[in-house]
Simulated scan of single mutants.
Amino acid sequence: MRGVGWATGYVLGLAALAVSGAWVWWQAEPEARGTEVNALWARHQWVGERHTEEEYRTLGALLRQNRITDVYFHAGPFEADGSVPPRKYRNAGDLVKAMRRHAPGVRVQAYLGQIRKVDGRGLTDLDVPRVRDRVLETDRIFLDLGFDGIHYDFEPIYPDDTAFLTLLDRTRELTRSRGRLLSVAIEQPTLVDAFQPVYRALIPRGHGARPVHYPPRPTEEYLRALADRVDQVAVMTYDVSLPTESLAGWHFAHHTEQVLRLIGDRTTVFMGVPTYRPLMPWAEKLKVALKGVRRGIDELERKPRKPFGVGIYAEWTTDASEWAHYRSLWLPSRSDNLHD
């Protein structure tokens, strides 16, 4: 029993050191400022319901004031066969036209996704060629309606998912032929790729004919493969579930540095930051996330060659005070741009 007590005390001591070290690290203010290339996930009602001209005007003003360059308007989700019923996007054409009037220059993308079928669980099975074909037919519908791009959010995506890479290859052929964009939302990467054997042993993925054991997070290799196939990668960095601001801030800083170092020269990157109410709202909040992203940028040896910014999740949960924090903590001043 004494040995168990010593071991427990040792573990608790290490945890206390980690927490105190993170707190000390967190006190310094970041030097990096934010950027003017930023994204926003927007609710389905914009695509599925009618809106007044004043509502469109207000949305456009919000996007311009906060220098949002890309909006992912939820337009799905996909059905099992890769289609989207027309009733779900009956207002899509009017939305695109309204954004041209009230937010010219903002890229309006169709946000499409579904629970990816894996080992018998989920809905849309991307391993089936005819399903991928139908997804592409659906993409064409939204591009024909005037959307500037297709934004995929299929979950879960595991780092052996070659069918998803095939879908990205074919979708990019389509979007490039139309002069449009392809973007993808993806989970935050694994903290340490070398832990994959441990994940495989301890975390079962499923119980199908070919069960695989590891979490649905991209490895470095898979993240690069994604980046080489799309115009934008939006990393869903939120859902941290860490109990203090300093630990949550370290999470955002670490992933920002890691992702921008790995793919920042390959594609535009948006680091997802939350405005919804997560499991631990006292720690994971917009102010903490923005400071963490800036700290991560500070850790880079040089800035990426491609544009980068943050992706705000989500339009329907962001209140006026959070938009004010975003502008003050993230957006560079206009005078900063004059000296770049």
Rank of each mutant, 00 (worst) to 15 (best):
A98D: 01
M99C: 01
R101H: 09
V106I: 02
V106N: 08
Q109L: 15
Q109S: 11
I115L: 13
R116F: 09
K117F: 05
V118N: 02
D119K: 03
G120I: 00
R121M: 12
R121S: 12
G122T: 05
L123Y: 13
D127C: 05
D127P: 01
V128W: 01
R130A: 14
V131Y: 00
V135D: 03
V135G: 03
L136R: 14
T138C: 04
T138L: 07
D139F: 15
I141W: 11
L143P: 00
D144G: 07
D144E: 15
G146Y: 12
G149S: 03
I150K: 09
H151R: 03
Y152A: 03
Y152E: 06
Y152N: 07
D153S: 10
F154M: 02
I157G: 00
Y158E: 02
P159M: 07
D160I: 05
D161A: 05
D161K: 00
T162R: 15
T162G: 11
L165Y: 03
T166G: 07
L167K: 08
R170T: 05
E173N: 07
E173D: 06
R176H: 13
R178N: 03
R178M: 01
R180K: 15
L182Y: 06
S183M: 04
A185T: 11
I186R: 01
I186V: 12
Q188W: 11
Q188T: 14
L191S: 10
V192Y: 09
A194V: 10
A194P: 00
F195T: 15
F195K: 08
Q196C: 10
Q196K: 15
Q196H: 11
V198K: 09
Y199K: 11
R200F: 06
A201T: 13
A201S: 14
L202I: 13
L202V: 15
I203D: 04
R205S: 14
G206Y: 08
H207D: 13
A209R: 14
Y214R: 10
T219D: 01
